[in-house]
């Protein structure tokens, strides 16, 4: 029987299999190279940090210099407080800015705003710290939780603004038209119907921004400053995980080094949790839009 014309010669088939195998191998290696750092980070944090992670780490204040033990309870609460304040500052400006870009702005104005947002996204975080230091720390003559929250919040604005714009643009025009055809005023159509349709996407954008800023250290150095005790007044300095990690890592004490690793592990877990929330939220994004 004649060989089928669709059947390659055995030699060619072997060469092709070899080629296919080689390409697959290269691609797998690249993919591993991309995710390997994540596993390295998690591996080292677990090895170094997990052993120092005990109950007191979550419940106690730092011990005075040189003493063994204590924890980062105030820094954990401080980070959560700062994130909450950053949300209060960053979300309204970011969301309304995004609404303006998607629904109102002229092409020319939008080009400028987007350009500005992209530049702001690239402003080094320490510069945010310096600017807020001048605006909120110098005039009030004190480092404060407020200043830290504002510094982080300002960093959130361009992030939230761009993602809000992106999800609003995805809301089909047909919903806007249907709502307008009911005799609903345009601003209500946008604020109630369009934004509501995109709410999950906007929420996702906010969490992504929170994950981005949760670990920021530089903007807090000249604003929130850090605090070895509980913060009872937002007008006073507040502790935060990244600040505490920084302070402990540059100290000469072994016990503090161990605690710095534990703090890094907790911070990383927080950021990972935020990212997982995003994944879960955006899993059925299709149904929202």
């Amino acid at each position: 029987m004649d060989a089928s014309p669709y059947l390659p010669s055995p030699r060619f088939a072997r060469w092709r299999r070899w080629k296919s195998g080689a390409i697959t191998g290269i691609l797998v290696a690249c993919a591993l190279a991309v995710i390997a750092p994540l596993f390295l980070v998690i591996y080292f944090l677990l090895v170094r940090g997990y052993s120092s992670l005990d109950w007191s780490f979550f419940t106690q204040l730092p011990k005075p210099t040189g003493e063994v033990g204590g924890g980062m309870a105030n820094a954990i609460v401080g980070t959560l407080t700062l994130l909450a304040m950053a949300t209060v500052v960053g979300v309204p400006f970011g969301v309304f800015g995004g609404i303006y870009l998607a629904e109102y702005g002229s092409d020319r104005a939008n080009d400028w705003i987007r350009f500005a947002a992209d530049v702001l996204n690239g402003v080094p975080s320490i510069v945010w710290g310096m600017v807020v230091y001048l605006i909120l720390v110098v005039p009030f003559k004190t480092f404060s939780a407020y200043a830290g929250g504002v510094a982080l919040g300002l960093m959130m604005v361009p992030l939230v603004m761009r993602t809000t714009e992106e999800v609003l643009v995805l809301v089909p025009q047909s919903y806007r038209e249907a709502a307008l055809a009911l005799g609903i005023a345009r601003w209500k159509v946008i604020m109630v119907i369009v934004v509501r349709t995109a709410l999950k996407g906007i929420g996702t954008g906010v969490i992504v921004a929170l994950a981005r800023i949760a670990g920021e250290t530089a903007p807090l150095l000249f604003t929130a400053l850090g605090n070895n005790f509980w913060n009872h007044n937002l007008k006073e300095p507040i502790s935060a995980l990244p600040l505490q990690i920084f302070a402990y890592s540059i100290s000469p004490y072994d016990d503090w080094h161990r605690q710095a690793w534990a703090g890094a592990l907790v911070l990383m877990a927080l950021i990972l949790a935020l990212n997982i929330t995003v994944r879960v939220l955006s899993r059925d994004r299709q149904s929202t839009l």
Binding site: Y175, L182, I193
Partner: peptide, 20 residues
């Protein structure tokens, strides 16, 4: 125009109930 549309309603080619 909003007042106009309250008196002149419109139904579109593709049904579009608000998804939320």
């Amino acid at each position: 125009a909003t007042a106009v549309r309250r008196r002149v309603g419109m139904v579109f080619q593709k049904s579009n109930p608000f998804p939320t």
